[in-house]
Design a protein around this nucleic acid. Sequence first.
DNA 1: TTGGATGTGTTGGATATCCAACACATTTCA
DNA 2: TGAAATGTGTTGGATATCCAACACATCCAA
Lengths: 189, 189
Amino acid sequence: MTETKMDPRILRTRKLIMDSFIELSSKKEFKDITIKDITTEAMINRATFYYHFEDIYDLLEKVLSEVLLVNLNCDFYKCDHLNEEAFVSIFIAITNFQKSLSNRCHRGYEDTIGRIIREQLEVIFYKMLLKQNKMEDDEALKITAVILSWGIYGASVEWKRNGMKVPPEEFIKSTIPYLISGTDFGSKI
Amino acid sequence: MTETKMDPRILRTRKLIMDSFIELSSKKEFKDITIKDITTEAMINRATFYYHFEDIYDLLEKVLSEVLLVNLNCDFYKCDHLNEEAFVSIFIAITNFQKSLSNRCHRGYEDTIGRIIREQLEVIFYKMLLKQNKMEDDEALKITAVILSWGIYGASVEWKRNGMKVPPEEFIKSTIPYLISGTDFGSKI
DNA sequence: TTGGATGTGTTGGATATCCAACACATTTCA
DNA sequence: TGAAATGTGTTGGATATCCAACACATCCAA
């Protein structure tokens, strides 16, 4: 998951930068945050910032990935199989993430955020599929993970478009049998 | 006061080490705290510890000095003259410090602690005397600062020996005229 | 007694971070 | 318009931190 033996200086500095960015995000809009602001808040040199991140968009991506990953693993570590509970807790994590971002001001980056969500979902789905499918066609599992990640992300977009009012578990629950048993579930054939 | 332009790495690392030591002190006795404990808690390398401190006693001294200095400056920054208010707030800072240490487990280091208190007092008294005595006999001011520091420290020891029950300002107030106006205060001559 | 386990303090080479300086773009404002 | 101010991204040399290894001391159980 996380790199095993990292230089503690790197962990420390990345955390300082990311935490400062999150802190600043709660006070300013993203477009008003400069790299100088971040490095001043973090008490690190501006050159050091560029040692770790390409630019401020790279930082944004990595912070969002990190936040989402923590959310996912938090709710999800108990499950070891893609059952109903797993799908529900994944979907709740995604909707929580979307909700928290709709307050923060990251408007104009919906496509970036969508990509990040799908990337993280793809990783987690692939991992779960590998675990429960004992070494079958690897390529098929990968593509299945892609399809699931787009699907679940799409569901969260739809949930958002409906005003984020329906409880997420309710929103997703009815469709889960189709996810788990496939489209044949309930088929007349 | 504090060095003006310090390398931020140094400030960061010292703070990490000191904070970790304070944190550990609230859980263990001083004698049970190893340097490995501190560096692990602080997530810094053991060699880095020795770059900043001679040994664990050196760290103890510097932490205590720092804590006391913060207390002193906190209560004291408003005063710019050695009047009654100044003496009272200094004495309160010292007794607070003694009280906080009597909970923590630094037994066996009373002499070290006493020395630290007197050193800090001496610095602060000397600074105040210089400010209000427009360039007179420098040596005399230094020695006066020494005498005041021993005196006030002694008062705090006595206050502690009496069970730390009398309110510190009450304990010190009656003697302040003698400190400010000298032994001639109230003299019959 | 001995030998392993644990803690202290030191060292040399590798690496991350700092700093000052630079070139370039964008904004501000006179 | 143009010039000052502000922000971005890069560089080279200096310095703090990391890491693995070492020598030494202390403690404790076989």
